[in-house]
Structure formats: structure tokens, C-alpha cells
């Protein structure tokens, strides 16, 4: 798994109650459409977040990149990042992209409609 996918899927682990984790979804169709539709600043913000929160911060905190950490380790890095000023701003972008990807899934839409 690359750093970007590790970051985005860690944003929404399994909510439970019949909802899948973002990592359980097939995002192959989402990324090309995102690259085509997103403005440059959104793409740049996600790329920067991937570097800072997906690579630099976990290396500093855990000595490993986010993609190589287990689920507990990834969540711990995200919670720490969410308390740091610059990282918190970057995570706003990652959260938007993660939510767009998550709720773009037909299965998630169907599960939400039943709630």
C-alpha cells in the first residue's frame, strides 16, 4: 500500500454497525476521477499531507512510515497529528478526500439509506 492510500484509509477505519472501513472499499475508480476533478490546491494539499502525516511524522514518532504500521499505530499517529497545528490543517484536506471517497461507494450509500 502506498503512503497516500495508507493515510486515506486510516482516516475512516470500520465505523461498525454495518458500515465498512474505507480500506475495505475498491478505490481504483475514485483516484483517476479525483485527479481529473480536483483543483490544483486540493491535490497539492493531499500530496503535502501524505508526505508530512504519512511519512515524516510517523518516522519521527515510530521510526516507520504510516503504511508499515498496524491499525493501532496508524490511528495513534493520526490522533497525534490532529493535535499539531500544521498537521491539523493538512488533515482537513485528507478528511475531505476520505469522506468523498467513502460516500462515493454504492454500498456505503445503501447502508446509510437504511439508517
Amino acid at each position: 500500500m502506498n503512503a497516500r492510500d495508507a493515510l486515506i484509509t486510516a482516516m475512516i477505519p470500520a465505523p461498525g454497525d454495518g458500515l465498512p472501513a474505507l480500506g475495505d472499499l475498491d478505490l481504483r475508480g475514485f483516484w483517476p476521477r479525483f485527479q481529473a476533478a480536483a483543483p490544483w490546491h486540493l491535490r497539492a494539499g493531499l500530496a503535502l499531507c501524505t508526505v508530512v502525516v504519512g511519512t515524516v511524522l510517523p518516522l519521527l514518532l515510530r521510526g516507520r512510515r504510516l503504511a508499515t504500521l498496524d491499525a493501532d499505530g496508524r490511528d495513534a499517529v493520526l490522533q497525534r497529528a490532529d493535535r499539531l497545528p500544521l498537521c491539523r490543517d493538512l488533515l482537513e484536506v485528507a478528511r475531505l478526500v476520505a469522506c468523498l471517497a467513502y460516500f462515493d461507494d454504492d454500498g456505503v450509500q445503501a447502508a446509510m439509506a437504511r439508517r
Binding site: A21, R95, L96
Partner: peptide, 25 residues
Amino acid sequence: YGHAIMAARIPAVGRPLAAAIADLA
């Protein structure tokens, strides 16, 4: 808002965000 924008405006990441999504209704 639709689900995605509602969820994107929740000030949380990771497991707390997932829990909030489960409670979105």
C-alpha cells in the same frame, strides 16, 4: 448536506471520525 460533506465537517480523524459517521443519523 449529503453524507460526505456532513462527515467531512466533523472535527475528528481515524477512529473518532468513524464513530461519528456511525452516529451520523
